[in-house]
Design a binder for these strands. Sequence first.
DNA 1: CACCGAATGAGATTGAGTCTCATGCAGGAG
DNA 2: CTCCTGCATGAGACTCAATCTCATTCGGTG
Lengths: 172, 172
Amino acid sequence: MSSTAPQRLSLTPPAADAISGNEAFEPVCSIFRRFLTKQGLRMTTERAEVLDAVWTMDGVFEIEQLLDRLRESGHRVSRATVYRTIKHLTEAGIIQEVLLDSKTSHYQLVYGRKTQDYMMCIEDDRLIEFHSPELIALRERLCREMGLEAVGHRMLIYAVCGRARKAAGEEA
Amino acid sequence: MSSTAPQRLSLTPPAADAISGNEAFEPVCSIFRRFLTKQGLRMTTERAEVLDAVWTMDGVFEIEQLLDRLRESGHRVSRATVYRTIKHLTEAGIIQEVLLDSKTSHYQLVYGRKTQDYMMCIEDDRLIEFHSPELIALRERLCREMGLEAVGHRMLIYAVCGRARKAAGEEA
DNA sequence: CACCGAATGAGATTGAGTCTCATGCAGGAG
DNA sequence: CTCCTGCATGAGACTCAATCTCATTCGGTG
């Protein structure tokens, strides 16, 4: 059920707390441009197209999905350029890598969002985002106790939703 | 400093709360044997050697390190067998995958240990284990609120230890 | 508008992890 | 103890995500 099955990830609340409306896209764009300039890099049409595609991805995505999205919208950006741009977007703090499994890398838009933690139902591979201020507070306290200063974290809770069990119970 | 540098992971407390002494190795061995038998599988010399090598690894390790360890001790176990055995050990609950980065898989012995959470100093790549009952409690509560039942979790806190800054401050 | 250096794309390359298959071995039946 | 069945092993082929190479193409500054 778990190991060999292809990873299909569905994100339950469709980017619920993302900034709504398309007018919010401009800020990200200029943030990215500013970041690039600061690094002595250039804003190109390819990079803009990748950022645009990232913007339309709901929740967690893989590079291959991003490539599909780009192809769908008729844009021709090479795999290499997408990987390179993803790296820059990560450094700019616009997207973030999400550690879900060790097979492929997953990313998510973080600009304008607060959620960065996930629960994954191991029965149906459903992914649920959450954001917990208590978790942040706990993180700060734990680090302070160790003499460190927290700068971020990744949390993934494995859980069972009971749907499968309920279904099995009903048919039994 | 971060992206291209080879990942050298040092585990600060050298398996501090692991069961001490070698007499504790026997139980794991028989647990594994029982697990294998239950699955209709067999305990072989190769599997025992892999388990033995895993037992001597302090903290988090990669497959390649495990292969090195096996070679050092003169054992000749193929890469394929090591990967296969790692899978079985994971299913048996003796080791656990640790999500640290998306490059290679990391594992850790979990039998007889409580720690499963990590802080990573992004300045010197030091990895510090911790175990927090409060985190478990929070995890349970968050899941309950979502109508789920928690079965496990992975947490990785990124932090700075200030050593680098202190050193820089002293030399400045 | 010319130039320089960064950016791109196609394809080669890497490397972790998996698969194949001929051979080997564990361990229960007799 | 020996045989036999079928799981286990090892060498190497294979897969596939990710990276690298390098000739060509642009961006944008002077």
